[in-house]
Design a protein around this nucleic acid. Structure first.
Length: 621
DNA sequence: ATGTATCGCGCC
DNA sequence: AAAGGGCGCGATACAT
């Protein structure tokens, strides 16, 4: 086999999915220990990479350079990945030296260039001496000087020099970074997920524009109201959050006869929990209630439609980036962040109506049932815990029976346990290492009761409890390895909470990816989003039933999955409704909210006073 | 002008 | 001794 180390210089990387041939400007590559060649003859590089004994090695090439060559020059990237002929040093580096969680000290949220960018990585792994200056910032400066990445002269000595250096760095890194089986699997996973970015998700642009216009009217009315009553300034997008605005609000609360609510750090608290409590505590104070409601409404306005529009390309679609850079390995879809669009709140779930199937298609969502719990079950091997995941059983009902007893619950009737909701809170809490104090607040119960519930749970599932302790002990080595072989880093001092949580999330993530890898070829271009335990597909309308079968078949293991000699844990999935937009997929799940159904949204009138769709058109409240 | 820190909204 | 995990994104204040 021959190793080909490579890097490309291109036009603005954000435009990858709209690149034309000329946007790939300069290629640099080296074969094994040969000299670095730079060339504008991109075809020659593609021809080289297409030879069957060549392995392509480069930094972020799986998500950028190679897709660019595939798009513009027909490189058969599918075949290369399928034959393990791609090594992306970014993926290898994350496995060798996994990241801390983004909230950890010293990390800037979201971006990991500071640690895994080619320059930073080389400095850390190879030592300072190998890197002469920062290639990225030099490039940026040249782009600024010439008016764009696509305008830098391809024979500019600095341009060529940094391309050569990057190829050399990749070659040096590849000699140090150890490739394991997991990271080769990870290449296949991310290659398939990159289809999400490539194809994009169709946007209802007209709807987004209409919402933004309506939103502007609402927001202006509320600001004006607070301005006239309490002197709120009108400058900026969110004057209620500016210094002068906060001053005005503090006076407003005083005018209403209450002490302004405070956060732990002493700032004015305007969170929705705080304001809701204030309303409850002063039900006869109409001025205060009006103030709180106006503030709630102002703070509750979300910028989702605008963010979607900001990222919508000339093809009317968003092309979110797909990354696996979270500490647990969970997948993020960003720019726009599809993972944070409304779902649980009635007021927000219709945000998902902004995303549409392709023409002639329908959307299909499939989610893995209580997958984090099953992941923990696989690892902890507590037989009683695993028994709750048997097909036909509902985890939270079973948990309620285990913690609170069977009283008042008739299994045979097929109804839920009366205390199912409480049980859900307890198991959720204990998964993440919540203490009695935290649980009492979270579940709205007394601290003694919370303590009792946690103790009961520990007693009912002793092996699960012992597993958590063991994982916490293991976590002191700072890096845990999941069943599938992913290495996850625990922040020193957070072993107690992060240890079990990361194990559960990391394993769950790979159970989902196991399903993605098992999808039939024809469904791969149909994948539109992955939201941790849910996959979203846009499927030709006449193939929906076939698609549903195939997805369930890929994701589910009713007979269970297990390591050798372990108790198997069933993995089950559930399909949502066939939708004409993303919200429409949840109309059965959210039966009480008629506006979730597109058919309801298409009617002109509605007699549900709580309907968030028709309400906004008739009133300004 | 640009980046960081903080908060606040949301999701799993 | 006690301990709710992971994220994205927008807005403001502030430092550079």
């Amino acid at each position: 086999m021959r190793l080909v180390f490579l890097d490309l210089e291109t036009a603005d990387a954000d435009r990858l999915y709209f690149f034309e041939r000329e946007d790939i400007r300069l290629a640099g590559y080296a074969v094994d220990d040969g000299p670095v060649v730079t060339t504008t003859d991109i075809e020659s590089l593609v021809a080289l990479l297409s030879e069957p004994d060549v392995i392509a090695v480069g930094h972020n090439i799986l998500s950028f350079d190679l897709p660019a060559l595939a798009r513009c020059y027909g490189l058969d990237l599918d075949a290369m990945v399928a034959r393990d002929r791609v090594i992306d040093t970014l993926l290898v580096a994350r496995q060798v030296d996994p990241p801390l969680s983004s909230n950890a000290d010293g990390r800037v949220d979201g971006r990991d260039l500071g640690r895994y960018g080619l320059d930073a990585l080389s400095k850390r792994v190879l030592g300072e001496g190998k890197v002469s200056g920062d290639g990225g910032s030099v490039l940026e400066a040249m782009a600024a000087e010439y008016g764009g990445y696509d305008k830098i002269p391809v024979d500019h000595p600095d341009y060529v020099r940094y391309l050569v250096q990057d190829v050399e760095l990749v070659r040096a890194l590849s000699e140090v970074l150890v490739v394991d089986r997991y990271v080769m699997r990870e290449h296949r996973v991310l290659h398939w997920l990159n289809r999400i970015s490539e194809h994009g998700f169709r946007v209802d642009v007209d709807l987004a524009r209409r919402w933004i216009a309506e939103q502007t009217v609402r927001v202006e009315a509320r600001k004006r109201d607070l301005h006239e009553r309490y002197g709120l300034p009108l400058e900026g997008k969110a004057p209620q959050r500016s210094t002068a605005g906060i001053k005005a609000l503090e006076r407003a609360f005083a005018d209403c006869g209450v002490e302004p609510p405070r956060t732990a750090k002493g700032n004015l608290a305007t969170g929705k929990g705080v304001l809701a409590e204030l309303i409850d505590a002063h039900l006869d104070n109409t001025a205060l209630i009006e103030l709180c409601r106006t503030l709630l409404a102002l703070n509750g306005e979300r910028s989702v439609p605008q963010t979607i529009l900001d990222h919508t390309g000339p093809d009317g679609r968003v092309h979110p980036s797909v990354d696996a850079r979270q500490a647990t390995g969970r997948i993020s879809l960003t720019r726009p962040g599809l993972t944070v669009m409304g779902k649980r709140d009635r007021a927000n779930i219709c945000e998902r109506a902004l995303l549409l199937p392709d023409e002639g298609h329908r959307l299909l969502c499939v989610d893995l049932s209580t997958i984090d719990g099953r992941a923990v079950g696989m690892h902890c091997q507590d037989p009683d815990y695993i028994a709750m995941f048997a097909p036909g059983k509902d985890l939270h009902d079973e948990m309620a029976a285990a913690v609170f007893g069977e009283d008042g619950w008739d299994r045979a009737l097929g109804e839920h346990h009366p205390r199912r909701g409480e049980a859900k809170a307890v198991s959720h809490a204990t998964n993440y290492g919540m203490g009695a104090a935290g649980l009492s607040v979270y579940a709205g119960i007394g601290e003694d009761e919370a303590k009792q519930q946690l103790a009961t749970l520990a007693a009912k599932f002793p092996r699960l409890a012992a597993w958590k302790d063991w994982i916490r002990e293991q976590a002191r080595s700072q890096v845990l390895t999941t069943i599938h072989g992913r290495r996850v880093r625990i922040q020193p001092g957070k072993e107690y909470t992060q240890g079990p949580a990361f194990m559960g999330q990391g394993i769950a993530r790979d159970l989902m990816m196991q399903g993605v890898l098992a999808l039939p070829e024809w469904l791969l271009p149909c994948l539109r989003a992955v939201v941790h335990d849910e996959l979203v597909f846009s499927i030709p309308a006449d193939r929906i039933d076939e698609g549903r079968e195939a997805v369930l078949d890929a994701l589910q293991f009713p007979e269970g999955v297990a390591l050798p000699n372990n108790i198997p844990v069933p993995i089950l999935a559930e399909a949502g409704d066939v939708g004409r937009d993303w919200a429409d997929c949840y109309r059965s799940e959210k039966r009480g909210w008629p506006e979730v159904a597109r058919a309801h949204r298409e009617t002109t009138t509605c007699d549900d006073p709580g309907c968030t769709w028709h309400r906004t058109e008739t009133t300004n409240k």
